[in-house]
Design a protein around this nucleic acid. Structure first.
Lengths: 96, 96
DNA sequence: ATAGAGTAGTTTATAATATAAACCAAATAT
DNA sequence: ATATTTGGTTTATATTATAAACTACTCTAT
């Protein structure tokens, strides 16, 4: 009846991040923090979880002497997002 | 950018229950357990949370000598569900 | 009449999550 | 020089979800 929802994505912040990343080539930590309105600590934790799940790739470097964290969604991440979207529709488009 | 998701509804089981209840006059505990595939314990807890939030009404009685728990969604619950549906669409229908 | 299995749940304990608070290292501003 | 800001990470705490254990009864068979 109800397909299980990927617990990695069924989280407000992680879903926000993935939702942003699917439509963008790459995104910086600070941009994600601003767009999601999250705290840096929470974002840091959730980005690592997404990376552990293989849904995003995190590239760390320096720019203008400051640390720079860039994130990109992976193919696996896109697939997982699409599956999540399809699944949650079962919950929100209730049958008449 | 991303509207916050009602934490009462952003739970797989509670969302399943409310999704079922919006399209039905009333539902019995056992029917909800079967439809959602949840355990009785988990369902019991989550139904009480929905009731505490004022999203459903729980009526307890007896039928054929057995306890009978019936659930109905409230107007508040319908409104909350509709708001949740609208909000999560922002997450899953990413802008191009 | 009573032992065993089944029904319909509730309560309690545990594991997982989300979040915030505190912290760190380096850079820049005063 | 020291204070503040940037760009994060780590740790601690509160909340959640879930499962396991339990309660209270009923039905059936002996």
């Amino acid at each position: 009846m109800f397909a299980p929802l990927d617990p990695v994505l069924h989280s407000q912040l992680r879903l926000s991040v993935v939702s942003l990343l699917v439509s963008v080539r790459a995104a910086e930590f600070t941009w994600l923090r601003e767009k999601t309105g999250s705290t840096a600590g929470n974002l840091s934790v959730q980005l690592n979880k997404l990376a552990e799940a293989g849904y995003i790739e995190i590239k760390k470097s320096f720019r203008d002497n400051y640390p720079l964290t860039e994130c990109k969604i992976t193919k696996k991440g896109i697939k997982a997002f699409e599956a999540y979207v399809n699944n949650i529709k079962q919950y929100i488009h209730q049958k008449k």
